[in-house]
């Protein structure tokens, strides 16, 4: 069964096709949910809500363009929706932002888990901006519109996110080294 057949069957509310679609795309979409959420529970909730939206709106998909892209957008939207009404974002002093261009870190040894934890531990809006800009390629202007913030705020949020991430990763790296030395 190719993807178009699965879509058509899903449009007819076929349970088997829905299960197949989930099996095929859940890993990719769950990764998106995980990156945009603050913890596993929230990621699972978003995956649940996102898939329900996909099945509900699958009739609106006209087989033009990438189906995967369409589903990804739904997942991102689901995640953003959670925070859209959350108007309480931490305010930061833009002057205090330091640029983080380089990071002294061993990219070979760094664990994926550390990278993910780093994102999840970021304050909500920093996490969203970081994901939208770095991982999903949205511009600051677009992010500003999506999150109802100004372009400048988006930029400063990203910088702040990077500073926090750098701290987190460096700390994690240090801990790893300490553990390594302790073993000797």
């Amino acid at each position: 069964m190719n993807i178009n057949e699965i879509i058509k069957k899903c449009q007819k509310n076929n349970s088997k096709a829905q299960a197949t679609l989930y099996e095929l795309y859940a890993p990719k979409l769950y990764a998106i949910c995980y990156k945009y959420s603050k913890n596993t529970q929230e990621a699972e909730d978003n995956l649940h809500d996102g898939f329900l939206t996909i099945f509900k709106k699958i009739n609106q998909f006209k087989h033009q363009g990438s189906f995967e892209g369409w589903m990804k957008r739904i997942m991102i939207n689901t995640a953003l929706e959670k925070y859209r009404k959350d108007k309480v974002f931490p305010l930061i002093n833009e002057e205090s932002i330091e640029e983080v261009d380089t990071l002294d870190i061993d990219d070979e040894t760094i664990k994926l888990e550390t990278l993910l934890n780093g994102i999840q531990n970021l304050p909500n809006r920093y996490r969203l901006v970081f994901n939208l800009y770095i991982l999903d390629g949205y511009s600051h202007k677009e992010i500003g519109n999506m999150l109802e913030i100004s372009e400048g705020t988006s930029k400063s949020n990203l910088s702040r996110a990077k500073v926090l991430l750098k701290k987190e990763l460096t700390q994690s790296q240090q801990q790893n080294l300490n553990t390594f030395y302790d073993e000797f």
Partner: peptide
């Protein structure tokens, strides 16, 4: 230890990441 751009690091490692969700999620969706 090599010096690496944070953005690049994240893009490379997380861009096409796949993770297996808890099977309970599908049951809930169903």
């Amino acid at each position: 230890m090599s010096s690496k751009n944070l953005e690049k690091l994240y893009r490379e490692k997380l861009k096409d990441l796949e993770m297996n969700p808890n099977p309970a999620v599908w049951n809930k969706i169903e």
